[in-house]
Write a protein that binds this DNA or RNA. Structure first.
Ligand SMILES: [Mn+2]
Ligand SMILES: [Mn+2]
Ligand SMILES: [Zn+2]
Ligand SMILES: [Zn+2]
Lengths: 145, 145
DNA sequence: GGGGTTGTTGCGAAAAGTTGCAATAGCAAA
DNA sequence: TTTGCTATTGCAACTTTTCGCAACAACCCC
């Protein structure tokens, strides 16, 4: 949140990009929101503070943050969600039936990362994965299929 | 391809859904296309055969196929791609730098599936995952970062 | 502080994707 | 073959996302 703000703003300039007020406002907005937010939610909040900011700018800045690995963009339950990247990357399991989402740690992917590295020399950079399936609760409710 | 056609068409009816000409045409079109196809590509091809088919129908049928696990919908390199599901599920590794995509087998995900099962009682149903990262080639070209 | 370079923004319009609703047409049953 | 039920489609309007381009403004240098 506020903690990362300075680091992130510095990062932008260190990478040779310009630190515009739009980028600062949008960054702050995502941080305030906390957790996942849609482009629409970010835009609505942003325009309340600064109505002059254009919708296209919000989309472009969100993509820009993803490019810098400062945020992630993920499809979850049919919604496209943005989230600020913290120190520890995390991922989600999402139930196909009830839609409930839970967090899972990055370590679950260690073996997968090892496989693609050994077999393909591919350096996986897993940011914000979504694992679809059926949660414990829905399995007991619906023990067929 | 043609091989699956009958099975798929039967599946639709066995599940209690209606076998409409639109669904057959769209299924054939994805099969002909082979591999990944965007909604737009499918729509363009479909309308050449049968211009009366509406764009909304194409989107709805594509979603319908995904619902039945007859197809998958995946974001890859900024494009939303549909693909017919074959006997063996497969996944992809995609290079963030050059965009090259390769196929990886389902077994790479076995440990991940085991983790979420043991820790969360979650039954993962991995269909068509995309693992982002840097391919071998781009690593040698660009050994920084 | 003023000036030049060029990355970014706002704007308008187009493209992509979604939705509600009335008309159509599968398909099962008679 | 005909009939009835209702899932599915086409249509049109709507929302969401993208794009090209001219105007703007960070940032660097003097
Ligand atoms: Mn998350
Ligand atoms: Mn594929
Ligand atoms: Zn559930
Ligand atoms: Zn590459």
């Amino acid at each position: 949140m506020t903690h990362y703000r300075l680091n992130y703003l510095n990062l932008i300039r260190e990478m040779g990009y310009r630190l515009t007020p739009q980028r600062q406002i949008i960054l702050d907005t995502i941080c305030e929101q906390g957790g996942h937010a849609t482009a629409r939610e970010v835009y609505e909040r942003v325009r309340q503070k600064t109505p002059s900011i254009n919708r296209a700018t919000v989309y472009r800045v969100l993509d820009f943050f993803c490019e810098l690995n400062l945020a992630t963009k993920t499809e979850l339950n049919g919604r496209t969600l943005y989230e600020i990247v913290g120190e520890e990357p995390h991922h989600h399991i999402v139930c196909n039936q009830c839609g409930q989402a839970a967090v899972v740690p990055d370590e679950y992917f260690n073996e997968l990362t090892a496989h693609v590295w050994q077999q393909h020399g591919f350096k996986a950079e897993l940011k914000h994965m979504v694992i679809a399936g059926v949660c414990r609760h829905c399995q007991t409710l619906n023990p067929n299929t």
